[in-house]
Design a protein around this nucleic acid. Structure first.
Length: 518
RNA sequence: GCUUGUGUAGUGUAGUGGUCCAUCAUUUCGGGUUUUCAUCCCGGCGACCCGGGUUCAAAUCCCGGCACGAGCACCA
């Protein structure tokens, strides 16, 4: 009908017959996170569950931000759960528990409502393990990992599968004996060896760890337990016990969800809503893993978890990234299952928007060259005043000029000296002639034209260094910094250079600045 | 190999059959404000993986390709 009579004709018919169909459907751009499915206000429980084998990395930020944001949106609870059930491959780091808790609070903007440590809950996992073994939903298996891999590939059941509950229980008790050998026995959830998805076939739930040789780093746990749950089991039990309603996880854990659903069916539980996100790569960061970073830090290859080159939350904070910028960044990336690769420029842009209006300006002259500036007949200003910020009310900066015999020494950047061989404008002060052989003369106070504007400093300004991470290097840019009274930790903007944060003076008495971004 | 997921401008993202010659942000380019190469403002460039099908109408539904990713650990 639209073809023969045209859309206009159709519209006129509709206006007569069914005007409600013509009401414009709102197609406004959705802002923020997509709605959480099946979420009841006040009844939502989310969790962020890192392995405390080190402090949080940049990528962990996503988990904190998204879970925290949904919790806030729905008046729900955010649980911080330490999944610290591996004592040998990715052993927990004792200091990481407290540091992560603090970092989560910083990123989220509020403290998690509950903190749970898996290693405190081993008895609970045992209870469920025994229950499911007793009910015939799981069995102890003595096959080697390699043998079982073959069974899984060939869709055949392993010999251990047919054992009765009592025998399984006996073997289960043996797993706890102090001389049990890792790999000699494992508890498997009995699913179906004919399942299409190989990952789901009789998956392992608990294993033996030699906690005599590798005690759990928490002293209260130490060598107390030899049998430990694997992630799929531990996480499944915890999510149920803690009333988690929504699990938000990477799509690499999709099969984990499927395994856990099979377990939930055996227990007669309802599985939480599950949402996935894809893999994120940050252009500027190479392949860093927490374990790798930990090894390298302990080997002295990095100065610590806040080494300027590392992609950690600690480093971000040290440089001056605001937690709000982190939140804006991750929320903007959304919750798609696409594998994405994003540049840090986006994060920096968010950060600039947040900090710029409150960030004091200072001059930092890199690679300074001394120029003897003669004032000729001009008035000898003893103090130059300039605004602390071009548009916000951040007070006045005062720079004292020490005149002697009609001239004063100043610093300008070597690059400016090389690039500009003509009349110049010293910012907020005066025009000067092109410096030659270290000398220059004042030409005018008012700017009467379009001259290159450059920043400058008196030569008695304190020496300073600017630390600038560049890939696997930290570039040290030395120069002189304008006298100021900003305390350590202040984020400033170095005019014509970029944003930076003030750190403690170094052992040579130099001012230290760490570069944030341009 | 089996299983499983994803494909919209350079990078992210909105869009769930018409009002989409496709949104917003960022990047980049040009211009304006500014005694910073910052901030702010204006503008430009730039995309629906490919091929079929369904339909009056497809970024949106179906089928088939292709590309990329993940799982099949006694790691998390």
């Amino acid at each position: 009908m639209a073809k023969s009579s045209g859309l206009d004709h159709l519209r006129s018919i509709l206006e007569e017959e069914a005007p409600h169909l013509l009401v414009k459907r709102s197609k406004e751009r959705r802002e923020g996170l997509p709605p959480l499915p099946n979420a009841t206000k006040g009844k939502v429980v989310l969790r962020f569950a890192p392995n405390p084998n080190g402090p949080l990395s940049f990528g962990h930020g996503r988990g904190v931000v998204i879970n925290a944001e949904y919790a806030k949106l729905h008046d729900g609870d955010l649980i911080l759960r330490f999944d610290d059930t591996d004592t040998s491959k990715k052993p927990p780091m004792p200091d990481a528990y407290a540091q992560i808790a603090e970092e989560v609070e910083w990123i989220a903007g509020f403290a998690p409502h509950r903190i749970i440590i898996a290693s405190d809950r081993i008895q609970t996992y045992y209870e469920y393990a025994e229950k499911i073994i007793t009910e015939g939903g799981a069995y102890t298996c003595n096959c080697s990992a390699e043998d079982f891999k073959l069974f899984r590939q060939q869709l055949t059941e392993c010999p251990c599968r047919g054992r009765g509950a009592n025998e399984n229980l006996t073997l289960w008790k043996q797993m706890h004996e102090t001389d049990s050998i890792p790999g000699s026995a494992v508890v498997r959830i009995k699913t179906d060896m004919g399942l299409k998805n190989p990952a789901l076939r009789d998956w392992p739930a608990l294993r033996i760890q030699d906690t005599s040789a590798h005690p759990h780093p928490r002293p209260e746990i130490g060598s107390k337990y030899r049998v430990w749950p694997l992630l799929d089991f531990q996480s499944a039990i915890d999510d149920h016990r803690q009333g988690v309603t929504h699990i938000i996880r990477g799509k690499d854990l999709m099969d984990s969800t499927r395994k856990q659903k099979l377990l939930y069916e055996k227990f007669g539980w309802n599985y939480p809503e599950t949402i996935y996100w894809g893999r994120v790569k940050i252009h500027e960061f190479g392949g860093f893993s927490t374990s790798e970073m930990r090894r390298a830090i302990e080997a002295g290859e990095w100065t610590g978890w806040d080494d300027p080159r590392l992609p950690t939350i600690a480093t971000m904070r040290r440089r001056g990234i605001q937690s709000q910028a982190l939140r804006d960044f991750w929320i903007e990336l959304g919750l798609t299952q696409k594998d994405i690769s994003v540049p840090l420029a986006t994060l920096y842009s968010h950060n600039t928007k947040i900090i710029d209006s409150t960030t004091p300006r200072l001059s930092f002259v890199r690679d300074p060259v001394e120029i003897e500036l003669s004032r000729g007949d001009f008035v000898p200003h003893p103090v130059i005043e300039m605004a602390g910020h071009p548009s916000s009310e951040l007070g006045l900066r005062k720079i004292e000029i020490a005149w002697a015999n009609g001239s004063t020494p100043i610093f300008i950047e070597r690059a400016d000296l090389i690039n500009h061989q003509a009349e110049l404008r010293l910012k907020e002060w005066c025009n000067i002639s092109a410096p030659t052989n270290g000398h220059s003369s004042m030409l005018s106070l008012d700017s009467d034209g379009d001259y290159p504007i450059l920043h400058w400093l008196p030569t008695d300004s304190p020496p300073a260094i600017l630390l600038k991470p560049e890939g696997r290097e930290v570039k040290i840019i030395s120069g002189n910094l304008e006298v100021n009274e900003h305390p350590e930790g202040t984020i400033i903007q170095l005019e014509r250079v970029g944003y930076a944060r003030i750190e403690a003076d170094d052992e040579l008495g130099r001012k230290v600045l760490i570069h944030l971004h341009d």
